[in-house]
Simulated scan of single mutants.
Amino acid sequence: MRYMKTLDQTDLLILGYLQENGKRSYSEIARFLDVSEGTVRSRINKMLKNNVFEFIIHTNPNKVGLKVQAIIGLSTKLGKQEDIAEYLNSYSEVRFIGAFSGKHDLIIQAYFRNNEDLVKFVNTELSQIDGILNADVNVELKQYKDSFSYILP
């Protein structure tokens, strides 16, 4: 596989159109850009092959019964961060795991049906993981933005 060195303006415009509407056809994007449908198809295939983006379905957690979102900062024992992050991958409630500098070694984002499920997760699951020193649980009260767009205008 060839390495994709840089994205040009056409690639960025294609990504922008797909982010506006992921169901947009290649022919429609081609018309917007005044290029051939083959050009759009080959560029999208190349970007997919090089992991520039992926097609996903972004589900609204509230609409599927997940009413509680928590951001949990974890402090870990030295040398345990990788093992803990790997172990947390097995939980379907956990959507995001990242290593950070600052107050917390790991920050996770997790979704739950209700507060009881969150409390059970923290007290039953997290408390049993070797190497977690403490958990700083923050529950989302109101969401102002949730975006997966990384293409700047």
Rank of each mutant, 00 (worst) to 15 (best):
V122A: 09
V64P: 08
S149H: 15
V137Y: 00
D146P: 00
L126H: 07
S127V: 12
N60T: 14
G79P: 08
K103M: 01
F53Q: 03
Y91Q: 02
Q81M: 14
D130Q: 14
L78W: 12
Q143S: 12
T59C: 08
H58W: 05
N60G: 06
I84H: 05
E93L: 06
I129V: 15
L118D: 05
E86H: 12
G98E: 08
E93R: 00
N114M: 12
N60R: 14
N89P: 01
N114F: 07
I107Q: 00
L106H: 02
T76R: 00
K142L: 13
K77C: 12
T59E: 03
K103T: 01
K142Y: 07
R113G: 11
Q143W: 04
L74V: 08
L74D: 01
P61N: 05
E86R: 12
N115I: 11
I108E: 01
V122P: 03
N114E: 12
F121W: 13
Y144I: 10
T124V: 15
L88E: 00
T124K: 15
L78S: 15
D83L: 13
G73L: 04
V119Q: 13
N138A: 14
V122L: 10
A135Q: 09
S90P: 02
F100A: 07
K67T: 10
I84S: 06
N62Y: 14
Q143Y: 03
S127R: 13
F148K: 10
L106K: 02
I57K: 08
S127C: 09
K77M: 09
T76M: 04
H58Q: 14
L74F: 06
N138T: 13
D117I: 12
S147D: 09
V122Y: 06
D117Y: 15
N138W: 06
E86I: 14
R95Y: 07
